[in-house]
Design a protein around this nucleic acid. Structure first.
Lengths: 184, 184
DNA sequence: GGGCACATGTAAGCTGTTACATGATTAA
DNA sequence: TTAATCATGTAACAGCTTACATGTGCCC
């Protein structure tokens, strides 16, 4: 996938739902796609400029002075469909948690326990967040169109978080349970 | 965590098990940490040079002409312990699969089905790979020391892959099951 | 002698973040 | 009036990949 194509996909995606300013594009990506996607302003503004240059998005005046509202064009929708049909780029794995676990012998039990506690609490708050999003999902204007897809992405997050919780429990038992049983 | 600290952690980590050439460092990272970590030569050689400069690793002659064997020093081991104790950097999420699912309305059913098929087969082959690694794990010289930690990282991969398989099944049912039942 | 695995390193370039700079609008 | 939020943009830099350049040693 070409340069910035992934960012372009996300930007075109949110603009396919609603006309937005650059600022709102970021808010939409953060609040709606936030549990599996991220973009910074430093990516969004240049990408929007590029999309306008390529005729995939048109720029109109916004509600306030100096603000610009972006609207996806017909060719923008076509490009979005094309981008979505390409196989997802899987990013090279870099899991700092598992790196620490693997070399866990160089870590004392306390540090290892802290690590597992953190994972557990993070997975727990993720589950809470997903549950909140799920409760509010029906109020979103895009619900009738995207609701089922949105729920599928939430479900992926839930299953991943639950798997993490199970892993923490297993790993605590395997690596941290003190040998309390006296030998025969 | 400072510049290149994550790469340095991985490199110091594999050198804490065994003395290696740069080439072997990469092989070790690929084969042993490969299911959750990745480094390219472009990162490894400059990092090794930096580690030598900082006295964390010493460079000795290798088995062949022009090859260099690196050995971790006492301060290198101390640094590794320190690096491992720092909280893992969680990379910003960028899940191309979920991005495509979220905007799945812009995708026809066939493309969606292909996407889910790919995830399923990838998760399946991951499980097969983990199972193979698990079978060979006892033969590795580092097994007595790292075996339990290694197994914990494998288990994380297995649970994640199983969660993905469950998600695919659920998502197929939710998004792709044709409405075959006639209405009352 | 040809091909492959071993071995080292650099340079160019892409992606993305962070910090900075600027200013308008609104609510307390 | 002052703080927060809305809004746009750029510059510097960090991190990483890829391609390139170079050569050794072994096996067929």
């Amino acid at each position: 996938m070409a340069r910035q194509a992934q960012t372009a996909t996300a930007v075109l995606g949110v603009l396919s739902i609603e006309d937005l300013t650059g600022y709102e594009v970021r808010q939409a990506i953060t609040s709606v796609l936030g549990h599996f996607w991220h973009e910074s302003f430093g990516q969004i503004y240049p990408t929007l400029a590029e999309l306008v240059r390529d005729g995939l998005v048109s720029a109109g005046p916004g509600d306030r002075a100096r603000s610009t509202r972006y609207r996806i064009t017909a060719s923008g929708r076509a490009r979005l469909r094309k981008l979505l049909a390409e196989p997802p780029e899987s990013q090279a794995p870099r899991n700092g948690l598992l790196l620490r676990i693997f070399f866990g012998r160089s870590l004392d039990d306390e540090a290892l326990a802290d690590l597992l506690d953190d994972v557990e609490s993070q997975a727990g708050s993720k589950l809470a967040t997903y549950s909140e999003i799920r409760d509010g999902i029906g109020d979103d204007p895009s619900f009738p169109v995207h609701g089922r897809y949105w729920e599928a992405t939430l479900r992926a997050g839930e299953l991943a978080a639950e798997a993490q919780l199970r892993w923490v429990a297993e790993t605590r038992a395997a690596l941290l349970t003190p040998a309390t049983l006296p030998p025969l």
